[in-house]
Structure formats: structure tokens, C-alpha cells
Design a binder for these strands. Structure first.
Length: 480
RNA sequence: GGCCCCAUCGUCUAACGGUUAGGACACUACCCUUUCAAGGUAGCGAUACGGGUUCGAAUCCCGUUGGGGUCACCA
């Protein structure tokens, strides 16, 4: 059975994490079919029929997000494909034709109500607790056509049956029945000639051969309109599956105000796309063997639509961070982390040399960071002599004031500066002073790092090197 | 408010009529230890409520409550 899926974002702003989330499942379903040796395609279609909300570079950024995540579509406006164009604005003529077909077959009608009239009608309907009734529906079709031909402003509306019910079959739920009296005559073609989502969506899904419509739960209530459209056109319906909505901590639909929703934010923070994907996959789904960490290929291997849970998953940045740290520590190699971090920093306009020193610092910091944006914040003393010295470090330096000059001298006279040598020297020095090693090391740490929190002493000393360490200790000893 | 969806620890979830209701994040304690992490061990912590069905219900049915979504010439 061929599986053709799609995501159909509208280019109205930042590339949204919800688009990535839904994209993950659509991409996976299509690739699973390919894996089975069947036809499988994942299409990216841009729904830019709202000229008012159009943001020019949004489309490109959505595409970049998908690529970053490794969810590259098989067909899209940027790549093209046999079913193009993939921008609805470029398919403009199509929708008018299909809308008119519906008018001709009696499934739709031209309507002439002004926005003001509609507002009044809506208010009245609201009061009476029913759905809006559009007067134009009862116009004589020939008369309506004359008015359209005369150039009167009109929209085309779906003529929803006055009786019966429309059933939505959802792969994740029991059949959902909607009374037709509860469904209003939705606009299909706007006065500006552009289609609404409902029409464009159904026409394009049909023309592009989409077999599975996997989208967010917020679309459930408009699905009966789509079902009615498929029926009016005499087309078979695709499989519908409505995924749960990603949520804020208060359970409301995930939003900009309460969560970072732009995937670009996660890129800027230095999250790994693998971790992002892994985390998103666990929103509404769990690995059957209880695996927490798994890659896209593994997800594709075991994912089943019917295993999706429907409670709205709260998007937890905490858990995402933990998972990202897990990838840093346990999935990627040190070399890979260093390479990615270097690229990340370069992208942030921090040009550090990708040398042994950099890699040594990265190695020390891997267990100490969850995302790349933490790296420089936690390591100023590795990059400059102008590193900040916090209050606690200042106090520790005072405590070590008496032995810091001598310690500087000892360190300066060490023949080598490898970990074994400094380890032995420091411990011997502590014994001489009659102090516990920590009592010596804490002031030393404060002096060379400006903070009481750092990687292990000896690897840090080795990385920093004798000259730098001695200079810093001397400076601290002199209270500079 | 009408319509629709949903309901297991604070959060993500496992269980698919029979388990001391399991795991992960977070939190707490301990271990490791030169600090901070990481890692290890332990702990805290849930079937919203009320009725049924059944020998037996987190699991099936009904109701209540709660949460969410949707009611545009936006998607």
C-alpha cells in the first residue's frame, strides 16, 4: 500500500516546533513504506493562501528546519517534484475551477453577504444557539450566477446537508460523528479568489495523491468539512490521524509566550537535531522496549501509529536538555562533539581554533553541559586571562593567601606538568602544610579559574599549561 | 456557552481483565570525589470521582468532574 504523507505549514512566521513534531511522524510513515519496498513519499506543501499573514522568508526557514532535523521532504517548493507546484499561491487557478465544479454540481453556492451582515447573522445564530444560516444559500442559482457575472463581490460556500451526520474516521480514535446541523456553510473560495484552507487542502491532497493525513488534533473539528468535500467531489478519503497537541506546562496548546516554539531557538541554543527528534518522538509515544535514547532509523523500525497516546503531552525543556546531554555524553564521540561544538561556536561568531587545546577543554566539559550554549559561559578562564573571579573564589583565594606564593614557586619548578606530576606535587605540598588536599586545591582552583566549580584539577592544570597556571597563581598571590 | 477530543506519579509514559501499578525527567538522601558535574544506589510520588459489568477492573460501559481544542472571506 503506498503511503504518501505531507506537512502543509503556512509561511506566517518562525519555523514551529509543532511543525517539526508532525513532520516527524509524516516523514516516518512515508519512509517506513519505502523500507517495505512500497511507494512512500513525504511532501512539503506551502499553504500560503492568506496574503495578509504571509512572511517572505518563512518558507525557506521551514525548509531549513526540516533539513536540520533530517526530515527532508521528497517533494517541496524548493526541490520540486512531479506534483508541483507546491505553493498554493501558484496553484491559484486550480481552486477556482474546483470550487465552480462544486457550484455546478449543487454542492456549493455563491454567497454575497458582507462581513457586517455576517457578523449580525452570527450574533443572531449565537443567541439562538445554532449555527449560522447564510441567506444566499437559498438564492436561485441562475440569479446568483447573473450577479457573479455582473461582477458583484462573492465567495463560494459549501452547501452542507441540512440533515444527517458526517462521520470522521480517525486512525487513533473511534469514529467521530458530527450532526450536519452543527456544521456551517464554510467559505471555500474567498472574495479575492484565493481558496480557504479547507478547499485547498482537500484539492491538493487529492491531486498530490496523499494517502495519510496526519496532523494536529486542533483540526478534528474541521475534518467533517473535508469529509463532505471528498464526498462532494466523489473522491475517496485519505486515512486521517490526529496527533495530540504539544502543551505548555499549564496544559494549554504550546505557545510562544510560555515556551520557545521556534526551532531556530533550539538551534541557537545548541541543541542537537538528534536529541530534538528523539525527544519529540516521545511526545505521545514510547519505545516498545522502553528505550529512552534511539535514533530516527530505530524510530522508523518500531513506530506504529496505533501506539500513539492521546493525552496532550507537556513539552518539558528540562527533559529535552537532559536528553541532549545524554547525546553529548553517550551517543556522540568526543571528536564528533568537538566538531559540532566548533561549528556551533563559529555560527555564533566565536572563532576558536579547532586544536588539541580546544578538544581538551571540550573533553572536560562534556559531562558538565547539556547544550552548547552553556559551553563558553562555563569556561571563560580557558580562553582569556581576563576571566571573572566570583565572590566565593575571592574568599577561597584569601584563605589560601599564606601558601599561594610558595605554591606558585613549587609549580614553577616542576620539571613536567602532566597529571601524575601535579597530582603528586600538590598532595605532597598539602602534607607539608598539614592540610587536607582539598584545602590547597580549592584556593588553587579559585586562583586559576575564578570559580569554585571546574573540571578535575589535574586535567585542568595540564590543559592550561605550566606557564599560564604559574602566572595566574602568582597574580592571585599578590592580590592582583 | 454549543460541538468535539482527552484523563495512570509534578512531567513524559508502561500495563492491552489477574503486576507489591514498572521505567524516565525533576526532586531528596547516600556512594564516588580536589570543587562542580557526570555516574551508581536508594527514596518520594499516580490509576480524578461515582455507579455499573465481571470471580476479578487502571484496563470494558454509563454518569460526574477536570483539562484541552474548535466555533473567520486564518491556517
Amino acid at each position: 500500500m503506498p503511503v504518501v504523507t505531507r506537512i502543509a505549514p503556512s509561511p506566517t512566521g518562525d519555523p514551529h516546533v509543532g511543525t517539526a513534531y508532525i513532520g516527524l511522524f509524516n516523514h516516518t510513515l512515508a519512509h517506513q513504506a519505502q523500507g517495505r519496498g512500497e511507494e512512500g513519499k513525504f511532501i512539503l506543501r506551502i499553504e500560503d493562501t492568506d496574503r495578509g499573514r504571509y512572511v517572505p522568508d518563512s518558507e525557506k526557514r521551514i525548509f531549513q528546519m526540516m533539513q536540520w532535523l533530517g526530515l527532508t521532504p521528497d517533494e517541496s517548493p524548493l526541490q520540486g517534484g512531479p506534483n508541483g507546484p507546491y505553493r498554493q499561491s501558484e496553484r491559484f487557478d486550480l481552486y477556482g475551477e474546483y470550487a465552480r465544479k462544486l457550484v455546478e454540481s449543487g454542492h456549493a453556492y455563491s454567497a454575497f453577504e458582507t462581513p457586517e451582515e455576517l457578523a449580525a447573522l452570527r450574533e443572531e445564530a449565537q443567541r439562538e444557539g445554532r449555527v449560522i444560516a447564510v441567506p444566499s444559500r437559498d438564492l436561485d442559482p441562475a440569479e446568483a450566477q447573473r450577479r457573479v457575472d455582473a461582477g458583484e463581490a462573492a465567495v463560494i460556500r459549501l452547501k452542507v446537508p441540512r440533515e444527517g451526520e458526517t462521520v470522521v474516521n480517525d486512525a487513533l480514535r473511534k469514529p467521530i460523528a458530527f450532526q450536519n446541523t452543527e456544521i456551517d456553510d464554510k467559505v471555500l473560495l474567498k472574495a479575492d479568489g484565493y481558496p480557504t484552507y479547507h478547499l485547498a487542502n482537500v484539492v491538493d491532497d487529492r491531486l498530490m495523491g496523499v494517502t495519510h493525513v496526519v496532523r494536529a488534533e486542533e483540526w478534528i473539528t474541521s475534518t467533517p468539512i473535508h469529509v463532505l468535500l471528498y464526498q462532494a467531489f466523489g473522491w475517496p478519503q485519505p486515512v486521517f490521524a490526529h496527533m495530540p497537541l504539544l502543551r505548555n506546562a499549564d496544559k494549554s496548546k504550546i505557545s510562544k509566550r510560555k515556551n520557545p516554539t521556534s526551532v531556530e531557538w533550539y538551534m541557537e541554543q545548541g541543541f542537537l537535531p538528534e536529541a530534538m527528534l528523539n525527544f519529540l518522538a516521545t511526545m505521545g509515544w514510547t519505545h516498545p522496549e522502553g528505550l529512552e535514547i534511539f535514533d530516527l532509523a530505530e524510530f522508523q523500525r518500531v513506530f506504529r501509529l496505533e501506539d500513539v497516546t492521546l493525552g496532550g503531552p507537556v513539552f518539558s525543556l528540562d527533559k529535552l536538555k537532559w536528553m541532549n546531554g545524554k547525546y553529548l555524553r553517550e551517543v556522540l564521540t568526543e571528536e564528533e562533539v568537538a566538531k559540532r561544538l566548533h561549528d556551533y561556536l563559529a555560527g555564533q561568531k566565536h572563532d576558536l581554533p579547532d586544536d588539541d587545546y580546544f578538544r581538551a577543554v571540550v573533553r572536560m566539559m562534556i559531562p558538565r553541559m547539556d547544550v552548547f550554549s552553556e559551553f563558553l559561559d562555563k569556561t571563560p578562564y580557558f580562553w582569556s586571562e581576563e576571566y571573572p573571579v566570583n565572590e566565593k573564589a575571592q574568599k577561597l583565594i584569601e584563605e589560601g593567601r599564606s601558601f599561594l606564593p610558595e605554591l606558585a614557586a613549587r609549580l614553577k619548578n616542576l620539571p613536567r606538568f602532566d597529571q601524575a606530576t601535579t597530582d603528586a606535587a600538590l598532595r605532597a605540598f598539602a602534607v607539608e602544610l598539614g592540610l587536607k588536599p582539598g584545602k590547597v586545591m580549592q584556593p588553587l582552583r579559585a586562583a586559576i579559574a575564578g570559580t569554585s566549580e571546574s573540571p578535575g584539577m589535574f586535567e585542568m592544570l595540564e590543559a592550561l599549561g605550566q606557564a599560564r597556571v604559574v602566572a595566574r597563581v602568582e597574580r592571585a598571590a599578590e592580590g592582583r
